[in-house]
Structures are given as C-alpha cells and as structure tokens.
Design a protein around this nucleic acid. Structure first.
Length: 469
RNA sequence: GCCCCCGUAGCCAAGUUGGUCACGGCAGCGGACUUUUAAUCCGAAGAUCGUGGGUUCGAAUCCCACCGGGGGCACCA
C-alpha cells in the first residue's frame, strides 16, 4: 500500500473534459492528457478490460482501463466503490460513443472504508440522508443541485444588494436581551461574565442601531435561532436576510422585495416562473398588494376590521375554529382569523398589508389607518416568504409597545418581547423614516428549488442525537 | 406536547389472517469475460428481523414499554 498523497495536481474536471471534447467520433483516441480526481462510483470489470465512473463536483466521466495500458490493472479492478482516486490518461471515445479517460496511471487518494449505498437505489431513508449528508451528496443528484442552487441564491442576493449600495454587516449572535421577533430563544451562559446570554432570534434591533449610526442601507445574512418545534418548514436554526433602508417606507420596500426575489429567480433559474407542488408560481413584478382584511373577505367571506365589535369578532373567529383567548384584542383576533382561513390559500405572490399594531410591536403606525401598521408580508405558495415594514422610529411609542409586550409576558406569553433600554436610547438619538425587511432564506430556496421540506435545503438539519441501537 | 404510520444484513428490499427464523438484488469476497453503461454469468459468505418485556406449544408477524424516523396537529419564519 502506497502512502496516500498530501496534495495532487488535478488538471481538469469531468465537466471540462466533456465540454472540451464534444462530438468526437466513436472509437477515436485524442492526444490530450488529463488528470482528474474524484470518487469511483461504478465499475464494470470485463476480464482484461474495465470501465469505471469517476465523479467529481462537476459531474461524472467514464474511465477506461485495460490490462495492457493500466498499471496495476488488478489493483484497479479491486478498488471499492466510493474510493477517492486520481487518474491520468488520454481523452478518448469508446466504440459505443462514451467519452472516457484512459487510465494510464492512477492513485488512491483516500479509500472508502465503509461500503457505499446501493448504486441504483441510493439512500431511501431520510434520516440517513440527513445524518450522513456526506454520503447523500454523492449519491443524490437532487441533493447536490439543491445545495448548489442555495449557494447561488445567496450569491445573487448579495450581488443584487451590493449593486444597490447596501452594506453587509455582522451583528452579535449572543444577545443579553433577546429581541427583534416574537419567539422563544435558546439560552446559553457566559462563564466569565457570569451571566446568561441568548442566541439571537433576529438581528433586527442591532441593524436598526446601525441605521442610527449612519449606515443608510445595511443588510445581514445570517443564522437566527428559535426555540420552537421542528417541522417540514421549521428548523431551530435558520437563515435570514434582514435589510434596512433609511429614508424609505413600506411601499419602497415592497418594490425592492419583489425585484430582489424576481431577480434572484432569474439569476438562479433563468426564469421568473417556478413550479411548486406541481403548480406554477409567477414571480414577475409587480406583485399584488392587498390588505389583510380584504384577503379575509375574499377567502372567508366575512368583513372584519378593528372597528368590528369585539364580541362579534370573537364569534366570527370561533365560527372559523380559531382558538380565542381572553387576552386577545381585535388585532390579534384578526391575525388569527387570517392565518386560519386565508394565508395557506394564497398562492401569490401577494403582499399582505396593514397588519394591526397589536401584533406588530416594531412597526410604525399606518399614516392613514390608526390601529394598523405599514407592515406587509409576502405570501408565495401559501407560505410566508418575508416580512417588512416602515420601522417604528419614535422612542416613546416604542417604549409603550415594549411595555405592552412585557405585560403579555407577565401574563404568560413567553414569546413576548422585553424592554431593550439600549435600543430605546439609540432611537432617542434619532432614527429617520426607515423601511426594514426580513426574508427567510431557507424558504426562498425551497420555493426556487421546489422542495417541500426545509431539511432538503439545510445541509445538516437539526435532528435528535443518534442513539446507538 | 398530541394523533397516525414506519424500523428485516453496509445499501435496496420480499415475507405482516403467527407454524420450512427469513426470498432476492446491490456493494464486498473468489472465479469467467478486451468496448461496458445499474454490464453479464458462476460460486461462497453476510441478519441477535430497532431494543426490552409479554401472550402462545410456536412470533419478523399479536400485545405493552422504550429508542429512532416519517406525516399531520399545535407553535412559529
């Protein structure tokens, strides 16, 4: 057994060889010598002749080995499926017209000491796919494609935002006070400080501090953590894009949002039309705008508003099976009604606007509709894709909202916010009219890749620890 | 957290009205084969049927608990 190399000079990828030699005649040999590396994924031995399939990150190419021209031919035919090898040889076309690299020399880069999954069926057990992604990526084309597209989505997002002069920043993930969203945080502990810290549930409050600091167009793409249940649409850690844009309002932000999403779709898929659950979604701009109440009227057939008498509103909600709690005000009831009857029915894309103040503690009140905010969510394929609003800039009002949240917290709502005095101090230095946006990157990737579970777009989704049994 | 379903060798997978405790394929091992394409052919081998209890003369097949997974509900993005 030779020593495994520390490095290796590879000259080509499988895809490069294919594109460089398109259309050559069957049964011909070129004089082009290439060196490739990858895993041996298939092998077809035929006595003094053997074929293999070498796979690298660009694709697969056939290896052609003969007893006459391949050194240690016997060793070559005893390679295991899954072994990493490097191969050097001429590019040729077999008689059957399969572009191949003749194995004029070969080296093992790393043996696979565990057997690879069935070459045809791959891994069918989802658990194994998620736990052993390092195997899944080799045997599942869809898996590779989804993660390549995910990378492209994020790259496109950055490019489009940079083109519009947004500045990318990184803000703390360890927060002394969890804030910026309604969610339960993970708690951790800093030994030297002797104090608990929270994994962030949103970067929002830090990013708005940066707008106060003069970063007029700022964004962050990063992980947030929410201590909640897992499902096909929820992973405890997920990736958000948040961006803030000074001197702009919710209308500006809706335009930016639809252009951003449509632009990413074109970048990654070459089209603004995607298929989800077998149905087409047209992401071309502009997207429809409709108030929450208009959409409830369309889908539930009832007219509600903050002016609807509370008793009546409660009765309507109960009629539609909404769980009505005593502390729910009209805004919360309308939101619950919307989520129960309407949201999943919206194919979209559609901007749902005018969320009640009661359920939007960081949003600025609507300039024409008291009690409502200039907040919107984009719904696509029945799912929330993003959330944005004209930011609440008045420190006094923000304090009142925080205090109201603390009351909810005291009443047992452990997702309610707590007062963030430093954030209020920042607002007191002045925050101009600013629009903000949060996009669930995982869900955007799901939409664009047509995957139905978040676990197919997160490389290592959160799982229960593997039990030995 | 609740409800439903699933768990057979490294992988895929028969067998589930309880009675040749386990069919077969891939991978691996041995052999044949110089143009294959999930190569093919021959041979040998590989399974405490998730774990632990229970019912029974007898269980992979029935019951209970636990572990793991999937789907749905709840919560959220």
């Amino acid at each position: 057994m030779t020593e495994l190399p520390y490095r290796y000079d590879v000259t080509h990828t499988a895809a490069q060889v294919a594109s460089d030699h398109a259309g050559i005649e069957p049964g011909t040999e070129t004089e082009v010598v290439v060196t490739l590396a990858g895993r041996l994924m298939l092998r077809r031995d035929q006595g003094k002749l053997a074929f293999g399939s070498l796979q690298d990150s660009s694709g697969r190419i056939q290896l052609f080995a003969t007893a006459k021209s391949t050194p240690d031919f016997d060793g070559f035919t005893h390679l295991s499926i899954g072994d990493w090898i490097a191969v050097t040889g001429i590019v040729m076309m077999t008689r059957r017209g399969e572009l191949s690299v003749r194995v004029d020399s070969w080296t093992v880069l790393a043996p696979s000491q565990r057997p690879f999954p069935d070459k045809w069926h791959g891994i069918s057990d989802p658990d194994t796919r998620y736990r052993q992604r390092y195997v899944d990526l080799w045997v599942s084309e869809e898996s590779r494609t989804a993660f390549m597209q995910r990378s492209q989505v994020v790259a496109s997002m950055r490019r489009l935002l940079h083109e519009q002069d947004f500045v990318e920043v990184e803000t703390p993930m360890l927060h002394p006070i969890p804030g910026g969203a309604l969610a339960r945080p993970f708690v951790t502990h800093h030994n030297a400080l002797g104090q608990d810290l929270y994994l962030r549930i949103a970067p929002e409050l830090y990013l708005k501090r940066l707008v106060v600091g003069g970063m007029e167009k700022v964004f962050e793409i990063g992980r947030v953590f929410r201590n909640e249940g897992m499902s096909s649409r929820h992973n405890p850690e997920f990736t958000m894009l948040e961006l803030y844009w000074a001197y702009a309002d919710h209308s500006d932000m809706m335009r930016l949002t639809e252009e951003l999403v449509a632009g990413i779709a074109v970048d990654v898929l070459g089209s603004t039309t995607v298929t989800y659950d077998g149905r087409p979604v047209d992401l071309s701009t502009p997207w429809r705008r409709a108030t929450m109440e208009e959409l409830i009227a369309e889908h539930a057939g009832v007219e509600v508003s903050l002016d609807t008498p509370l008793d009546e509103l409660r009765a309507i909600c109960e009629r539609f099976g909404v769980e009505v709690k005593d502390q729910y005000g009209p805004g919360k009831l309308i939101l619950e009604l919307y989520e129960k009857t309407t949201e999943s029915e919206l194919w979209g894309p559609v901007f749902v606007t005018d969320y009640p103040v009661e359920v939007s503690p960081l949003s600025r009140e609507h300039r024409q509709r008291p009690g409502y905010t200039e907040r919107f969510e984009a719904i696509v394929a029945g799912r929330e894709l993003c959330n944005g609003f004209s930011e609440l800039t008045d420190p006094a009002v923000q304090r009142q909202r925080f205090v109201a949240q603390e009351a909810d917290r005291a009443a047992g709502d452990d997702e309610a916010m707590v007062v963030d005095e430093d954030y209020l101090r920042a607002l007191e230095y002045g925050l101009p009219g600013t629009a903000g946006l949060g996009v669930g990157v995982d869900r955007l990737v799901m939409l664009l890749t047509g995957t139905s579970t978040i676990r197919d777009v997160v490389l290592f989704p959160t799982l229960k620890p593997e039990q030995p049994n």
